[in-house]
């Protein structure tokens, strides 16, 4: 079934996304189709308004995280033609990824799992922006990453671009 198809009874096709923590999000097909993963899945099984397909999601996508992804998909399904055009859409995107680092990570995973390329772009950019002015030590601390380099190995990496570590 393709995007925007109306069923004979006039109801729009719907799909239910169910998170591991038990919440259900009912969305229309245009919204679901923003996700490559859902689009593929639904093209095989189909869905309708009377008997919407329920899709369970992995535990890493909590209801709070899915809320963000759905918000993104709904807004982008509507496109730039509504509510102030492209400029408003860009502003929406910017504000959507103003998240704390754990939430940012969760949404990045969700965007990758659900295959929402532009949302993944946005979150990756937000992560990059967050760390871009940090030193190596700050980046490690921020993400809780422990260096597994030997002293010698780290020296080699740093020598690639010595001025970045001045």
């Amino acid at each position: 079934m393709s995007e925007g198809t109306k069923e004979p009874d006039g109801g729009e096709e719907k799909v239910v996304l169910k998170t591991h923590d038990g919440q259900e999000f009912t969305v229309d097909m245009a919204t679901a189709n923003q996700s490559g993963t859902l689009k593929n899945l639904l093209s095989e099984v189909g869905s309708s308004s009377n008997n919407p397909q329920v899709i369970p999601l992995p535990s890493s996508i909590t209801s709070r995280v899915l809320g963000k992804v759905v918000e993104y998909c709904q807004r982008h399904a509507a496109g730039g033609g509504r509510r102030g055009g492209m400029q408003a859409l860009e502003q929406f995107d910017e504000e959507l990824v103003e998240l704390d680092k754990d939430m940012l990570l969760d949404v990045t995973y969700a965007a990758a799992f659900l295959d929402v390329p532009r949302l993944l772009d946005l979150t990756s950019q937000a992560v990059a922006d967050a760390i871009k002015n940090m030193s190596v030590e700050e980046v490690r601390h921020y993400f809780g990453v422990v260096s597994d380099f030997t002293e010698e190995e780290e020296k080699v990496i740093r020598s690639e671009c010595p001025w970045a570590f001045e």
Partner: peptide, 16 residues
């Protein structure tokens, strides 16, 4: 890849 080129050095030096 979203990082400006010079900042990728710090990213690479974080861990293996």
């Amino acid at each position: 890849e979203k990082l400006p080129i010079p900042h990728r050095a710090c990213f690479r030096a974080t861990c293996k």
